[in-house]
Amino acid sequence: MQNNDSFLNTSAASADIPLLECRNLCKSYGALPVLYNWNITIAKGRIVGLLGPNGSGKTTLIKLINGLLTPTSGEVLICGNPPGVESKKVISYLSDKDALDSGMRVEDTINLYSDFFEDFSEERMYGMLKRLSIDPMTKIGTLSKGNREKVRLILTMSREAKLYVLDEPIGGVDPAARDYILDTIIKNYSPESSILLSTHLISDVERILDDVIFVSNGQIMFADAADNIRAQGKSVDQLFRETYRF
């Protein structure tokens, strides 16, 4: 298995700056390497799955993209910029950890997002809330787990960002909520933006992925378009299981 795979999207016009670029990206905690030599390029208009077992480095990459961690070496660039104020304006991030303030109402959170993010669309947000029959005046702490995850998702998807980074968006929710979440992701697709989706639940998610990146033990194992994998007679889930057979 190669561990320095460069992953280029063939749909990219070469003149465009890629939405996400990682060059020889490494991260270690002290002597313990968590990410080793990652090279990734994501062009616009793609839905990319970052697939791997827990602890393989997916969340670390996502934190590096969002500036929650700094690289040990190498660089990560978002639309050509390193993580900072400029990159945060164009990244919409759904963390796996729930960071919403339980004491706030949904509406307050919407106002917060709307205030700080120019690309936030209140119209889209309230539209989706209505279709979910969630009252904006409800306190976040009183929402059911499924509803809470949905609200977090639609907050993320109501922005017209360039790069959407979703960390385990369907973990821990019931199948109906999962379908809703995946459909929302498809519906909010735009050819000008891309989605990076990290998960270990491959079979539920593979139908919406353009491209997949397999990671394990801090290294990229493999990267390709999903249908290319299927052209060889296997589903992405199957290939994943074979790759990571315990």
């Binding site: 290319n228 299927r230 052209a231 296997k234 589903s235 992405v236 889930d237």
Partner: peptide, 8 residues
């Protein structure tokens, strides 16, 4: 849709 053949 089956997932072991290209979806397109």
């Amino acid at each position: 849709i089956d997932y072991d053949r290209p979806i397109w």
